[in-house]
């Protein structure tokens, strides 16, 4: 590992760790205002939706995004598995299997 790489690891680790840990320290010490608590109740559903969208859209900077059809097709059986089983494991396994099938048959 070069010295540059060492600095990158230390610097990136520091900013990442602070982003993760400082909120825990502040929340422990301070009483959050009501509006912030209300705002935070929506963080789980919004961030998970945005992260899912990241897998379903393809960005083209300067132009409208397009749909990642391959992922969208695999998402359908995965979602159905979730509705039927309510099991995270089933969603992931069916999703991976669906994608492997799509690629195998070259759909």
């Amino acid at each position: 590992m070069s010295l540059t790489e060492l600095w990158i690891i230390l610097g990136c680790a520091a900013v990442t760790l602070l982003s993760r840990v400082l909120p825990f320290v502040f929340v422990k010490q301070l009483q959050m205002p009501e509006w912030l608590l209300s705002f935070l109740t929506f963080v789980p559903i919004t961030i998970m939706t945005a992260l899912t969208c990241q897998g379903l859209f393809i960005a083209h900077p300067g132009h409208l995004a397009t749909v990642n059809w391959e992922n969208l097709w695999a998402a359908i059986p995965a979602t159905i598995a979730g509705i039927l089983t309510k099991s995270l494991l089933a969603v992931v396994v069916v999703g991976i299997a669906a994608m492997a099938c799509l690629r195998y048959f070259g759909l």
């Binding site: 109740t41 559903i45 899912t52 998402a75 995965a78 995270l88 969603v91 992931v92 999703g95 994608m99």
Partner: peptide, 27 residues
């Protein structure tokens, strides 16, 4: 990619967001 593992992450978020949707009774 031929084994479909690259889709695991998206599949996981689909599962997590669906479970969140059906089980968060507050919202």
């Amino acid at each position: 990619d031929q084994f479909g593992f690259d889709f695991a992450l998206t599949a996981m978020f689909i599962g997590l967001v669906y479970l969140q949707l059906i089980s968060d009774r507050k919202l």
